[in-house]
């Protein structure tokens, strides 16, 4: 996982409920890295949404030449933008549909991880004591589970499917988020605005979700933007190993097909380079966005 320096404090108190979120969004614009990240995300999101329109062929369809033979191993930049696979499938169209599965997996996994991580962090940090102890021990166990092997074993237990990655991440990856959120909550709960809410008789849950939660949301967002890339990487690895979903087209399964079809020894770079580049772009976008947020949120890193 990328380096995220232990955050010191989220600036400001809890004036507006969503002030912190709004502030974070406003400041992204000032950071070129973050802007580039958001831009890359937007492009891939557009591709994923309009995959049906953007693709030139059905990604799983075996194409034929006019003479009736399979249109296998066509070079790029002719009738097919990126050429065809050894089984006569259109590589460009696979790439476009791959964006869709990558983002679906990436976003759901990131959402699941951050939801669980934030909730656990909030509850553990706010109620402390026994609840905290139990949750942190569970976190220790989760951190002791080797992630990729776990997803592999999981997929032999469940049906092979791209959702295994989401389940695996939800079960194993949340502790790093929850630890940070927890320490944030521990410091927030001592602040004056929380004290004020307590004195005016707000219920604990109201204090937690109305006064504290909005202040840790930007932090969750940082972890979310990293988790998206992390999930896409993992999905690619799992698909590459052949434990992905049956005929879902994904960048990982493209790479697996290329690898298994000797694309490397035959030098068919147009087949296995583009999926890799797409993965890099999406993951890097996550880093850029989170890096931008970090600098916005933890100014001490700046100097």
């Amino acid at each position: 996982m990328p380096v995220t320096a232990e955050p010191s404090a989220v600036r400001g108190g809890g004036r507006g409920r969503f002030a912190a979120v709004g502030r974070a969004f406003a400041l992204v614009r000032r950071d070129p890295f973050a802007t580039a990240g958001v831009l890359i995300y937007t492009v891939f999101l557009t591709i994923a949404i309009f995959a049906d329109q953007l693709a030139t062929h059905d990604p799983n369809q075996i194409l034929y030449r006019p003479n009736g033979r399979v249109a296998s191993n066509l070079p790029p930049f002719a009738q097919h933008i990126l050429g065809t696979t050894n089984l006569g499938r259109d590589i460009y169209s696979q790439l476009v549909y791959g964006a869709r599965s990558a983002l679906i997996v990436g976003i759901t996994a990131a959402f699941a991880v951050v939801m669980i991580g934030t909730l656990v962090g909030l509850v553990a940090g706010f109620f402390r004591g026994f609840v905290d102890m139990v949750m942190m021990r569970i976190a220790d166990v989760a951190l002791g589970i080797p992630f990729l092997p776990f997803v592999i074993v999981l997929s032999s237990f469940l049906e092979p499917s791209m959702w295994n990655v989401v389940i695996g991440m939800a079960l194993v990856v949340w502790p790093s988020t929850s630890r940070v959120i927890r320490s944030q909550v521990l410091s927030l709960r001592e602040r004056t605005f929380v004290e004020a809410a307590r004195v005016t008789g707000s219920s604990p849950f109201r204090i937690l979700f109305v006064h504290i939660a909005p202040n840790v949301l930007p932090l969750s967002f940082v972890y979310g933007s990293i988790a998206v890339g992390w999930a896409i990487l993992t999905e690619a690895s799992v698909s590459f190993l052949g434990f992905g979903g049956g005929d879902t087209v994904s960048w990982g399964s493209m790479l697996q097909n290329a690898y298994a079809s000797q694309a490397l020894s035959r030098g068919w770079y147009h087949w296995f380079v583009p999926p890799g580049v797409c993965i890099i772009l999406v993951v890097v976008a996550g880093f850029f966005v989170s890096r931008g947020f970090e600098e916005v949120l933890f100014p001490r890193l700046r100097d």
């Binding site: 490397l264 380079v273 890099i280």
Partner: peptide
């Protein structure tokens, strides 16, 4: 720094595939 971030974002098995294609098969 961006170069470093890119290497961190690249799937290591894909890096391996590229290295294999170039230095072993190529």
């Amino acid at each position: 720094i961006p170069i470093v971030l890119v290497t961190r974002a690249a799937p290591e098995f894909w890096l391996g595939m590229v290295l294999l294609a170039i230095f072993s098969f190529g």
